[in-house]
């Protein structure tokens, strides 16, 4: 829908696969807004002129009301807003469900910067390099207050919350540099918390990745190191605690009877709050790592655990995949 960007010159550029869908709804609602605003203004002006008071003691005919007219202006707006509702909800669901082959990028918001980790190990601040045409799923969290990762050109945004993982996904479809912003007021330098998404061709992206000094160690490899240095190995490598092999995306039976999916949020919760997430059949002895481990290190551990997955395919992190057993059908 390039024509739209030309038609409305001030519009933020469209640079993602969903942007044209969002803009189509925007255009529809703008048409409705312009039509009804114009209708109201015109009727007001016409009536105010046509029926202007001609003498001081003029008394006009009195009309009490008209039920068919009332019903008309109840039903027509109801139909229009129902269309907007359904259209908006369909987009919302589309934007909430990342493609299952999306590549994960890990983003931590902090007062006042965005720290971005690529699975290959590259780390960047206030810049996000991504390949064009490939779905990217950002796993967002915050180290302090609530932030919001917003890329207007992609028509997406999502809050980054402390103690919680949220996700936002997009497929950039045009090479270029697009600004991103923190959209949730987060303190003194909120307005400095912005950067750029650099959308690159696959080949340039790989060149860029190779040139990163931090690229030597991938996130899983970094996680494997932490597995040793934090002493996770002492239990999880000896059978005293559950093994991490095949843990990713599996169903975990907790001691309290709950069954949860081992996604990123579960792993994070377990590291920080082990007593509340005690796994059935194992002694309740894991200490908390609250205050000892950074959000970035947790991401590394998640990437490591994910790399130990025995079933190929899904990488759902915050939102458990809707299809429970459909994993193996995905190529």
């Amino acid at each position: 829908m390039l024509w739209l960007a030309t038609f409305i010159p001030f519009f933020a550029r469209e640079a993602s696969s969903v942007a044209p869908n969002v803009d189509a709804l925007f255009l529809f609602e703008t048409a409705v807004t312009v039509f009804f605003s114009a209708l109201i203004f015109i009727l007001m002006i016409v009536f105010a002129v046509k029926y202007r008071r001609r003498s001081p003691d003029e008394v006009p005919v009195q009309i009490h009301g008209n039920i068919p007219m009332e019903l008309t202006w109840i039903i027509i707006p109801a139909i229009i807003v129902a269309v907007m509702f359904v259209w908006g909800a369909k987009l919302y669901i589309l934007l909430a469900r990342p493609p299952r082959d999306a590549v994960h990028v890990y983003i931590v918001g902090k007062q006042w910067m965005w720290k971005i980790q690529h699975p290959e190990g590259a780390e960047e601040i206030d810049m996000l390099h991504i390949p064009v045409g490939e779905p990217i799923e950002c796993i967002l969290t915050s180290q302090d207050v609530i932030h919001d990762f917003s890329v207007p050109a992609f028509r997406v945004k999502k809050d980054a919350l402390p103690d919680r993982y949220t996700t936002v996904w997009f497929t950039a479809d045009k090479v270029g540099r697009y600004p991103f912003y923190c959209d949730q007021y987060c303190g003194t330098f909120h307005s400095h918390m912005r950067g750029f998404v650099e959308v690159m061709r696959r080949s340039s992206y790989e060149t860029w990745l190779a040139g990163q000094s931090t690229s030597g160690v991938s996130m899983p490899a970094e996680g494997a190191k932490l597995y040793q240095s934090f002493g996770c190995i002492q239990c999880h490598g000896t059978g005293k605690g559950p093994s991490w092999v095949g843990l990713w995306d599996s169903k975990v039976h907790l001691a309290n009877g709950q069954v949860v999916v081992a996604d990123g949020a579960y792993i994070r919760n377990h590291i920080l709050d082990p007593r509340d997430w005690h796994v059935e059949g194992y002694p309740n002895i894991m200490p908390t790592f609250q205050g000892q481990i950074t959000e970035e290190q947790i991401f590394d551990l998640i990437a490591y655990i994910k790399s130990l997955a025995t079933t190929p395919g899904p990488q759902g992190v915050a939102v458990p995949p809707p299809a429970k057993n459909g994993a193996s059908t995905t190529p």
Partner: peptide, 23 residues
Amino acid sequence: FTIGGLTGLYLASTGLDIFLHDT
């Protein structure tokens, strides 16, 4: 009020609000 109300519908439309929220 008409303009204000109609532009509120953009923000009530979930998928479109994602674009416009907090702007």
